[in-house]
Amino acid sequence: MFEIFASLKLALDLMANGNAEFVRVVALSLELSLAAAVLGSAIGLPLGAIVAIGRFPGRRSLIVALNALLGLPSVVVGLVVYLMLSRAGPLGSWGLLFTPGAIVIAQTVLVIPIVAALARQVVEDAWNEYAEQLRSLGVGTGRAVRTLLWDTRFSLLTVALAGFGRAASEVGAVMIVGGNIDGVTRVMTTAIALETSKGDLPLALALGIVLILVVLAVNAGAYAIREWSAIRHG
């Protein structure tokens, strides 16, 4: 217990007089995870909605596959992205390995299935409610997808936040493709892993507390936006 209090104190101390290095690590974590959440949602939300409404062969299998991918092991994703981006791999000439870009690619791959699977459920529930009405108005699939995505936008914001959460808490894949390079690809989670392996457990836990607060702040911000626009748009 004593250690946890020491870490709490250390976390407060870090946030109060955080040096430039600490601020850079926190900012990079936030930046990359938000980018991955935005990119992953840009792909995952429409994908989920299409699977929810569309009627095509193999749809059931696709739903099961999407749900199963919620448990996609991040280390495997990291390895595959590593092998793709490595100089000896097919995309090696891009020179992206061990850059922030590589981290966002890996995080995006992890975010897409979460966003798609959850969006599928949200949109399908709405579809069950409004399908008859939409059909009677002669609305096509494309229009229905857009209507339902718009109608469920507040629920989908939560879905996007789940994607952000996965990206921000990711360590295995980020370590492999980013390399945890000081000042370049060191993010909160890999810094925590590094301090743990240096045996500095109080500092590692303090960084963990800061990470949790950052995720909390992002969620609080999203909640505020949601409340505000719900009032504004009724």
Partner: peptide, 23 residues
């Protein structure tokens, strides 16, 4: 919807651009 979609896509493009420039 278009406004939201356009904003979201713009954010996605901006995010990729920032990363590309960074690299």
């Amino acid at each position: 919807f278009r406004r939201l979609a356009v904003t979201w896509m713009a954010a996605a493009v901006a995010a990729s651009t920032i990363l590309a420039v960074k690299d």
